[in-house]
Simulated assay, not measured.
Amino acid sequence: MQRKAIVIGATGLVGQYLVKQLSEIYDTLIVIARRPLRYINASIHFYQVNDFDNLAEICANIGADQNTDAFSCLGTTRKLAGSDEAFRKVDHDYNVSFAKLCREKGVENFFLLSAMNNDIDSRFLYNRVKAETEQSIRALGFKQLLIFRPSLLLGKHKGRTLENVSQNIFKVFSPLVPESLSIHPISARRVASAMTMSANNLYERRKFQSADLPSTTSIIENKQMLAMTRVKH
């Protein structure tokens, strides 16, 4: 059986690495994005959209089914979005809409890029919306829901001055901060690798399992991603 996946958030910091890695293990990779991809190969089927409000129209013509894995790396910041409402629309509404459309097509496995320190009762909009998004997608009943919660992402963030400054500070002190600490920053490439490895592990389990895997929601915290992607010398 051919492997198929669908991705949104493919041009972001993690998404651009994820697309390249997934294209190496999936026979067909459907990518929906507003901007052209930096990387393309024969397995990638690219659909460009002007607005994610039209996501349903795009998904209606895409051959996603129960044998398709869905990935979302879609996200923004309050500053880039321009308002609380616009930020929530991207980080919550678009993600949940995508997940619902995938579920309606029979997709059983969903991989969500979230963030560390989510809290539905947080006074911080970012943490609160991330928690709400996780909660909304949990309610859709995917057989396998994998949620990835990285710490500070290392990589060049366009338009994210504060995060770029934080990264520069970290580079000075990084030799003193062991990866065993959960707050240790993680590169976008390693987060993408953790998502890809998790998808491959799930595929191998399903392939050799005589019965269906039980429905589960798995939280992959930052510390776990650091451990599973650590280069062994």
Results as ranks from 00 to 15, higher is better:
residue 212 D to M: 10
residue 203 Y to Q: 08
residue 1 M to N: 06
residue 111 F to H: 04
residue 43 S to K: 11
residue 62 I to S: 02
residue 45 H to D: 07
residue 230 R to M: 12
residue 124 F to I: 15
residue 198 S to I: 02
residue 189 R to C: 13
residue 51 D to F: 11
residue 75 G to Y: 01
residue 211 A to N: 12
residue 98 F to T: 03
residue 121 D to K: 15
residue 79 K to W: 01
residue 26 Y to K: 08
residue 233 H to P: 10
residue 187 S to W: 07
residue 41 N to Q: 08
residue 35 R to N: 06
residue 231 V to I: 15
residue 135 Q to S: 13
residue 134 E to W: 03
residue 23 S to K: 07
residue 51 D to N: 13
residue 130 K to E: 02
residue 134 E to F: 09
residue 99 A to S: 09
residue 170 F to I: 09
residue 124 F to R: 14
residue 99 A to E: 01
residue 68 T to H: 03
residue 56 A to E: 09
residue 39 Y to E: 09
residue 21 Q to I: 11
residue 121 D to P: 00
residue 63 G to M: 12
residue 103 R to E: 00
residue 21 Q to L: 15
residue 232 K to T: 09
residue 214 P to I: 10
residue 178 P to H: 13
residue 170 F to W: 09
residue 84 D to G: 04
residue 196 T to I: 12
residue 177 V to F: 15
residue 167 Q to A: 12
residue 50 N to T: 11
residue 20 K to R: 15
residue 219 I to S: 03
residue 71 F to K: 02
residue 131 A to P: 01
residue 194 A to K: 02
residue 41 N to T: 05
residue 183 I to D: 05
residue 22 L to M: 12
residue 95 N to T: 05
residue 15 G to Q: 02
residue 135 Q to H: 15
residue 218 S to E: 10
residue 80 L to I: 12
residue 135 Q to P: 01
residue 166 S to W: 06
residue 33 A to E: 04
residue 110 F to G: 03
residue 184 H to L: 12
residue 95 N to V: 08
residue 21 Q to F: 10
residue 10 A to C: 05
residue 230 R to Y: 06
residue 144 Q to D: 04
residue 49 V to M: 10
residue 210 S to F: 08
residue 226 L to Y: 06
residue 197 M to A: 10
residue 193 S to W: 09
residue 144 Q to I: 09
residue 55 L to S: 03
residue 142 F to A: 04
residue 66 Q to E: 14
residue 15 G to D: 02
residue 83 S to H: 06
residue 55 L to I: 12
residue 106 G to Q: 04
residue 230 R to Q: 09
residue 8 I to V: 12
residue 3 R to T: 06
residue 118 N to D: 04
residue 58 I to Q: 05
residue 171 K to Y: 13
residue 205 R to G: 01
residue 179 E to S: 15
residue 74 L to R: 02
residue 122 S to H: 08
residue 207 K to M: 10
residue 185 P to A: 14
residue 28 T to M: 11
residue 226 L to P: 00
residue 159 G to P: 07
residue 16 Q to N: 13
residue 165 V to F: 12
residue 207 K to E: 05
residue 202 L to N: 02
residue 20 K to D: 06
residue 79 K to R: 11
residue 131 A to E: 04
residue 160 R to V: 13
residue 160 R to H: 14
residue 25 I to L: 13
residue 182 S to A: 15
residue 25 I to P: 00
residue 9 G to I: 08
